[in-house]
């Protein structure tokens, strides 16, 4: 925890309620981000509890996706991007000089807004990350692939056609395949950037059930613009606005009794 709690706008870091009892899987300290001259994040302090679902909500352009991309240093790929502050994954400092960026990214799985399976077979999609780690043995690969597909509740649907192209799957299946691909390399945290926005209602429902199952073993960080979804799925919710973390707390508490005026305006639909 931080020694001093910064003043508004970057307010509280510790979620109220039961979160205090949980371990912290991921923590940001004073995290700011600039794209060129434009500031996208402003001194964000956040502590994500382990093996829970934390939802990030806020109007579009508030910095939710930018925050995710800071955590696994995907922003490194953007030339004009500058980061200030600290990100701790477990006890690893993500921005320390001796951090292996690719291993950091392996430890934080990421699922994108639109399913992005590789133009490979279903089998090779899941095998992709494993092969990078040097796992070549056919039997070991197959075992790990089966386990990952089972965890993503996709195994029964694709077991018979692992060699088909990943594009032959429906969008909902593709999104679960992408999750299986991330799970195969044994991440600690799974970040999902509006993962259900491309899915139809039935697939979305199925997807949310999967999230609940995954939360028993992984720390989940879910960006969503859908507040019903955040309320349905998450244990904790963080509300962001214009690059600042406004409020962070137990989901039920935040939705029923927001402490901040702007949070209330947002969840009651006055803007966003």
């Amino acid at each position: 925890m931080l020694s001093s709690i910064p003043e508004f706008p970057s307010s509280s870091i510790a979620p109220a309620g039961s979160a205090e009892n949980a371990d912290t899987a991921l923590r940001t300290e004073d995290l700011s981000l600039w794209y060129g001259a434009r500031q996208a994040l402003d001194r964000v302090d956040l502590a994500i509890p382990a093996r829970r679902i934390t939802a990030l909500i806020g109007p579009s352009g508030c910095g939710k996706s930018s925050l995710l991309r800071c955590l696994n240093r995907l922003n490194d790929e953007i030339a004009e991007c500058r980061v200030d502050g600290r990100v701790l994954i477990g006890d690893t400092d993500a921005y320390a000089k001796d951090t292996l960026v690719h291993d950091l990214r392996r430890r934080i799985g990421m699922v994108f807004q639109r399913p992005n399976p590789f133009p490979l077979s279903i089998h090779d999609n899941v095998a992709y990350g494993l092969r990078l780690l040097g796992i070549r043995h056919r039997r070991e690969l197959d075992e790990r692939i089966e386990a990952a597909l089972k965890s993503a509740t996709l195994w029964d649907e694709v077991a018979a056609r692992l060699d088909d192209s990943a594009f032959s799957l429906s969008l909902g299946q593709q999104q679960r395949l992408v999750i299986a691909r991330a799970l195969a390399v044994e991440p600690e945290i799974l970040m999902l950037d509006e993962p259900a926005s491309a899915l139809d209602p039935v697939s979305t429902l199925r997807f949310e059930e999967l999230l609940h199952e995954l939360a028993q073993r992984y720390t989940l960080l879910l960006v969503t613009h859908n507040m019903q979804q955040a309320a349905r799925v998450s244990d904790f919710t963080a509300f962001m606005h214009q690059g600042c973390l406004i409020e962070f707390g137990d989901t039920d508490a935040l939705f029923t009794n927001p402490r901040e005026r702007r949070t209330e305006d947002f969840i009651t639909g006055r803007y966003g």
């Binding site: 780690l133 070991e140 075992e143 790990r144 386990a147 990952a148 965890s151 799970l183 044994e186 073993r217």
Partner: peptide, 11 residues
């Protein structure tokens, strides 16, 4: 962690 078969060491 992931429920891998016991034969596989953790990555």
């Amino acid at each position: 962690m992931l429920g891998n078969p016991a034969t596989c060491e953790s990555l």
